[in-house]
């Protein structure tokens, strides 16, 4: 688990795993070595979550179908009436 790449996790998976780690740590029953590994995992998950939280930028694109039938993206003014 500790080696699983956290970059592929969704925010929800990451935060759930993080909560699990915190509960484990709070129970204090796991051996120190595992606790340290869990902590490191927790740090990486936290960073992952933080990145996910920082990736919060509204970007709106409109899809239009080009002449050859392929969809293409073009910028869309999201809030035109402001």
């Amino acid at each position: 688990m500790a080696n699983q790449n956290s970059a592929k996790l969704s925010f929800e998976e990451a935060i759930q795993e993080l909560e699990g780690i915190v509960r484990q740590l709070e129970e204090g029953k796991i051996p120190l070595e595992e606790a340290v590994t869990a902590y490191e995992r927790g740090v990486s998950l936290r960073q992952h979550c933080e990145i996910k939280l920082q990736e919060a930028k509204l970007r709106v694109e409109k899809i239009s179908i080009s002449s050859n039938g392929e969809p293409k993206l073009e910028p869309f003014s999201p809030l035109p009436e402001e």
Binding site: L18, E19, I21, G28, L32, Y39, E50, L53
Partner: peptide, 27 residues
């Protein structure tokens, strides 16, 4: 809601730091 998640993450982060510190102190 992003701000709620930020708070939640902060809380979790605080909790695991405290938990690990407790563990370390205990050890």
């Amino acid at each position: 809601v992003r701000t709620q998640l930020v708070l939640k993450l902060q809380e979790i982060t605080a909790r695991y730091s405290v938990a690990l510190n407790n563990k370390l102190q205990h050890l």
